[in-house]
Amino acid sequence: MFTQAQSPRLAQRRARVLKERAIEMVLFLAALVSVFTTVGIVYILVKESVVFFQQVSIVAFLTDTQWTPLFDDQHFGIMVLLSGTLTSSVVALAIAIPLGTIIAIYLSEFAPFKLREIAKPFLELLAGVPTIVYGFFALLFVTPILQWFYPELPGFNLLSAGIVMGVMIIPYVSSISEDAMRAVPMNLREGSYAMGATRFQTAVKVVVPAAFSGIASAYILGISRAVGETMILAVAAGMQPNLTFNPLEPAATITSYIVQVALGDLPHGSIGYQTIFAAGLTLMLFTFACNIAGHVLRKRFRETY
C-alpha cells in the first residue's frame, strides 16, 4: 500500500528530472557554440600562421620596414601595418576617451533626470550607425573640412578616419563609464557633499576614483574597438601600406589590409594569401592583451563599497 501510494509521484519525479536534464543540455550546447567558435578561430589563425612563418622568419616579420607581399620583391614587415593601426587608434582614443568621460560625468552627476533619459538613447544610437556610413562620412565630409584648414592633406588620411572612429567609440566609453559612476552608492557622494565639496569636486575626486574599475573597462573596450575597426579605415584612410606615425598621411592598417587581400584575387595557399592569417593573429593577440590588461585593472581596483 505504501509503495502504491508512492509510485505515481516517483514516476512524476523521474519525468521532471529528465526534463531538467534536457533543458540543461540545450543551455550547455548553446554556451558551447560560442566557445567552439572562439577555439575554431584561434585554431585556424594559428594553423595558417604556422604555414606562413615556415616561409618568413618571425624576426623579419617584426622588424622589416616594408610590407609588399603582393609585389615581386616581397617584404613582410608587420610594423608597417601596425603603425597605421596604432596611429588611427591613438587619434580615435584622443577623441573618444576625453569626450566619452566628460559626457559620462555630465550625464551621471550633473544632468537632470529627464535630459539623461533623452540623451542616453541618442548617444547609443551613435553606436548603431553602420561603420560603412561612418567611412563615407569621414571621406566625403570630414576630410574636405580638414582640407579647408590644411590644404595639403591627402584625400585619404588617418586623421579624418581616426576622428570619425573616435566619434563612433564615444558611446561605448560614455555609456559604460556612466553605468559605473551611477553604481557608486549615494552615501559616498553625500559624504563628499557634507564636507562642503561642490558637484564638480565630488564627481572628480570621489565618484570617478570610486568607479575607476568600470571606467577602465570602458576605455579598454574603446581601445579594442579602435584597433579592430575596419570599414572606416578601408574607406577613408587609403589602402597603401605606409610606415608612418603621422596622422596626416594615408596608410593601410592591419584590418584594411585584410579586407583588401580577402576581397582580391590572390590564389589560396599563396604566401600573399597566407599573410592575412599572420596579420589577423597579430591583431587578435593585441586585443587579447588589451582584454587581459582590462581584467587585471578591474580586479586590482574593484570597488569594495
Partner: peptide, 19 residues
Amino acid sequence: IEVRMRLSMVFQKPNPFPK
C-alpha cells in the same frame, strides 16, 4: 556649500572615500 563648510556630518554607514 557654505553651510556644509561649517557643519560636518558623520553617517550611519561608514563611507570612507576610495583614497
